[in-house]
Computed example of a mutant assay.
Amino acid sequence: MREIVFDTETTGLDPRSGDRLVEIGCIEMVNRVATGAIFHAYFNPERDMPAEAEAVHGLSITFLSDKPKFATRAAELLDFLADSPLVAHNAGFDFGFLNTELALCGLGEIGRDRMVDTVAIARRKHPGAKLSLDALCSRYGIDRSHRTKHGALLDAELLAQLYVELMGGRQIGLELAADAAVVTRGEVTAPATPSATPRSFRAPRPHAASAAERARHEQFMAGFGDALWNRS
């Protein structure tokens, strides 16, 4: 089963008030194993960047000013998403911004029936617990030491690991993804999933007792005398 785990960064909290999407990071998973295929892009929001938003993700309007507008990458993004389920943390937020940007391009919205919300999954598994991405990564022992600010691709990578754990985890050492070359889209190159370490063939060991072992066993059993198992 193909799924896309994704995250967004924005200029604020509400696309209805004019906030825009400025970064998206998407990771392809097949049978809940990352394939190495990604889509990552920054976008020029065609507006200012509020200081409080920049403090969260570190994306300044100076950095974004030469990036493409969302409309120029929309078709490529939709091609990558295809018809797969879309996994996000607090997915309603990300869907709201993504669909607003698509509407501004004159494109159809992505149906909410494709939405997989990891916050909702975590709430069912851990009622009353903290449900932020940071808190859940700590709960499941997912390393986020390299995360100093929010970033769409980095957060999507963390979320992909968290999603696997929320859905039951993965047996250590079990490799389900076939070896494949890295498929890269957008502006970031992702490493391919490492293949399983080849194992050398080991011949089966003999398990039948030798004649000498059987003789020693019979001698040992004879020492019990009138044993119950000899009376029948």
Results as ranks from 00 to 15, higher is better:
His150Trp: 05
Ala135Ile: 09
Ala160Leu: 04
Ile121Asp: 04
Thr72His: 07
Thr148Glu: 15
Leu81Cys: 06
Thr148Gly: 15
Gly168Pro: 00
Val183Gly: 07
Lys149Asp: 10
Ile38Arg: 06
Leu154Val: 09
Val116Lys: 12
Asp14Trp: 03
Gly36Arg: 01
Arg147Val: 11
Asp48Trp: 01
Ala82Met: 06
Val22Gly: 03
Val182Asn: 08
His207Pro: 07
Glu54Val: 02
Ala227Arg: 06
Asn230Glu: 15
Arg139Thr: 14
Ser84Gln: 10
Ile4Asp: 04
Gln219Val: 12
Tyr42Thr: 09
Glu52Ile: 08
Asp14Ala: 00
Ala192Arg: 11
Leu77Arg: 00
Asp48Met: 06
Ala222Trp: 05
Gly18Asp: 02
Arg185Asp: 01
Arg202Ala: 12
Asn31Ile: 11
Arg205Gly: 12
Phe70His: 02
Gly169Trp: 02
Gly151Arg: 06
Pro198Thr: 05
Gly92Trp: 07
Ile61Pro: 00
Ala120Ile: 06
Gly128Glu: 06
Arg214Pro: 07
Cys105Glu: 13
Cys26Asp: 09
Leu102Lys: 12
Ala122Tyr: 00
Gln219Phe: 10
Ala129Thr: 08
Asp94Thr: 10
Ala192Phe: 08
Gln161Glu: 14
Ala190Arg: 02
Glu28Leu: 07
Pro45Gly: 15
Val87Met: 08
Ala181Asn: 13
Ser210Pro: 09
Glu52Phe: 12
Phe95Pro: 01
Gly58Cys: 10
Glu54Ser: 05
Arg114Cys: 12
Ser200Val: 11
Leu159Lys: 03
Ser232Asn: 14
Thr100Trp: 00
Ser84Lys: 14
Ala152Pro: 00
Phe97Pro: 00
Tyr163Phe: 15
Pro85Cys: 13
Gly58Ala: 13
Phe224Tyr: 00
Ala160Asp: 03
Lys69Trp: 07
Ala88Gln: 02
Asp7Gly: 04
Ile61Leu: 07
His217Glu: 09
Ser138Trp: 04
Thr193His: 13
Arg112Tyr: 09
Glu187Ser: 04
Met167Val: 03
Val188Asp: 01
His146Ala: 15
Gly108Arg: 15
Met1Thr: 03
Asn44Lys: 01
Val119Gln: 04
Ile110His: 02
Ser17Pro: 00
Lys69Asn: 07
Lys125Gly: 01
Leu107Cys: 10
Ala181Cys: 09
Ala122Trp: 02
Gln171Arg: 14
Cys26Glu: 12
Asn44Cys: 07
Leu81His: 07
Arg123Phe: 05
Lys130Met: 01
Ile110Leu: 06
Arg47Asp: 14
Arg47Glu: 15
Lys125His: 07
Leu21Met: 10
Ala211Lys: 12
Gly225Lys: 13
Lys125Ala: 11
His150Ile: 04
Ser132Leu: 13
Phe80Ser: 13
Asp179Cys: 10
Gly92Ala: 15
Ala82Ile: 04
Gly25Cys: 09
Ala180Val: 04
